[in-house]
């Protein structure tokens, strides 16, 4: 804490911090604690997934067959690229280059938007095929499995929906960040918000890395995936 109790407190150092390093490490630890919370949130869904897949493996394979793995794979690639563009923004912030921050954020919004667009295409397809759980749901395959396939789609929509919701929130935050970045809100000394937001965005990517194989790829090897 070298610059503790200095007479003038820099503008990009909040009043209750003594040094940039303390501020940066606080921000990082806070974000990681928040992400630990997010991990547990999604874990609850994955626990449900594992339990019910163990109970109804056939229905899970049937449900997975209705998902288009090509769209899922496309979205995986899109989301990975958006993670990279987010890294680009953070590196820009590290270099104190606000153009890099702004472009990084714009590209991240763009790829995030493509992901959500593909998601809309997928969701509307499910709606047309009566695969959205609820009164609208109809199952034309094995009638005995109907209720269980509906559970698969229930989990599919909650898991991907919660994931998409996190992306929508993220895009909203980035839209606010762009003008701030342009006006030079983040300095080389304090770009903690950009870095923290980057962590959030990568976490969203992480969730998808697990969602993709376990939702889309269950039924590719013959009747496989199940038990």
């Amino acid at each position: 804490m070298s610059d503790a109790a200095s007479a003038h407190h820099p503008k990009d150092l909040a009043h209750h911090f003594e040094s940039y390093e303390q501020q940066k490490q606080s921000s990082l630890l806070g974000m990681w604690a928040f992400l630990a919370q997010e991990v547990m949130f999604f874990s609850g869904l994955f626990v449900c997934y594992v339990v019910y897949r163990g109970m109804y493996p056939e229905a899970w394979a049937l449900g997975s067959q209705e998902l288009d793995w090509k769209l899922g794979a496309l979205n995986t690639v899109v989301l990975l690229i958006s993670s990279f563009t987010m890294v680009y923004a953070v590196v820009g912030a590290q270099r104190g280059n606000r153009k890099m921050i702004v472009w990084g954020l714009i590209l991240t919004i763009l790829f995030g938007g493509i992901f959500l667009g593909v998601k809309v295409v997928e969701y509307s397809g499910k709606w047309e095929h009566h695969l959205v759980p609820g009164p609208h749901f109809e199952w034309h395959g094995d009638p005995a499995a109907g209720k269980e396939v509906e559970m698969f789609f229930g989990l599919y929509f909650v898991m991907t929906g919660m994931h998409a919701l996190h992306m929508v929130v993220g895009i909203g935050i980035m839209l606010v960040m762009i003008p701030l970045a342009w006006r030079g809100k983040w300095t080389k000394n304090n770009y903690n918000f950009v870095e923290g937001f980057g962590l959030y965005w990568h976490f969203v990517d992480l969730v998808w890395i697990f969602l993709f194989p376990f939702l889309y790829l269950l039924a590719l090897a013959g009747g496989g995936g199940g038990h």
Binding site: C48, Y52, P135, E148, E150, M151
Partner: peptide
């Protein structure tokens, strides 16, 4: 809200 069987045994849940 949507009668998805997450927990109700009558519709598949536990």
């Amino acid at each position: 809200a949507f009668r998805i069987g997450f927990f109700d045994p009558a519709i598949g849940g536990d």
